[in-house]
């Protein structure tokens, strides 16, 4: 009886702890939502009323509009290039051995470890010395390198899970290598590629530190514009735009979880 009670008690404690920790992770988002509808320019809890004026300002502020479009351009190109390069590289690593493979793998995985400001600073200098300044090309290249490890990992895991017998069977039935790739391998890799692309797109859309270095006004992305705003104004407009981003992300995660399976995308599941 005592043992039973002890187990129940510790289970209760454990779940309360988990709930508390999840609360700690979630409270900032809730506070942002609360602040975003506050009518006052000053911080106040609880808000003294309900107002959408900060949303109006966030949506009509020209810097945010421009930065949002810039961000979409950068993300679209960066995540797609990252998908192409990353898938090719995952295939290369999984299927072929060649000299310099280890070096190539290390270099392309290293943006995970190299501090983002080092990467951003490097591309800033590269852009300045190539005399292309802080143009789209530089921003997209930076984002491709930063997201590449995630795409590669996602596609690589899918490749590992792919049954080689299927490809062998197609080859034995007379399919050319291109046909095998197109009809068998690629369709089977699609979930991994979609997941990798999604992660790359989300990371690119929200990347800040490296972007701060490599973007100029005409190429700045939304997080950079938001950072500038925080430094220049003190009103809750940032709360409104943050609330929109949080809502958008949550919905996207719900959809991704429903259709692709988050565990799969993040490679949490066993096997």
């Amino acid at each position: 009886m005592n043992a039973w009670l002890a187990t129940r008690l510790s289970a209760g404690l454990f779940w309360s702890a988990v709930a508390l920790i999840l609360g700690y992770m979630t409270i900032p988002a809730l506070v942002v939502l609360m602040t975003s509808v506050s009518p006052s320019e000053l911080l106040e809890f609880p808000p003294s009323g309900f107002s959408l004026r900060w949303y109006e300002r966030a949506l009509t502020y020209p810097d945010f509009q421009g930065a949002f479009v810039n961000g979409l351009i950068v993300t679209a190109f960066a995540s797609s290039l990252s998908l192409l390069i990353g898938s090719a590289f995952a295939y290369l690593v999984e299927r072929y051995t060649f000299g310099g493979r280890v070096a190539l793998e290390a270099i392309l995985a290293s943006p995970l470890i190299v501090p983002h400001f080092t990467t951003g600073f490097g591309f800033l200098l590269l852009g300045a010395n190539l005399r292309i300044g802080q143009s789209y090309a530089v921003v997209v290249a930076t984002h491709v390198l930063l997201t590449l490890p995630f795409v590669t990992r996602s596609v690589y895991v899918s490749l590992r899970n792919l049954d080689p017998a299927l490809e062998r069977a197609a080859t034995n039935l007379g399919a050319s290598p291109l046909q095998v790739l197109r009809r068998v391998t690629l369709p089977l890799l699609l979930p991994g590629m979609a997941g990798g692309w999604l992660v790359a797109a989300m990371l690119s859309l929200t990347e800040f530190t490296a972007s701060l270095y490599v973007t100029a006004q005409r190429t700045q992305t939304l997080p950079v514009a938001m950072y500038t705003y925080v430094r220049e104004y003190t009103d809750p407009t940032i709360a409104a735009i943050s609330a929109l981003l949080i809502t958008f992300t949550t919905i996207l995660m719900l959809i991704a979880n429903r259709y692709l399976g988050l565990r799969r995308i993040l490679a949490i599941d066993a096997h």
Binding site: P187, L190, M193, W197, L260
Partner: peptide, 10 residues
């Protein structure tokens, strides 16, 4: 699954 992913990519 592949269909859904294809839709996603599309």
């Amino acid at each position: 699954m592949a269909l859904r992913s294809a839709a996603f990519l599309a």
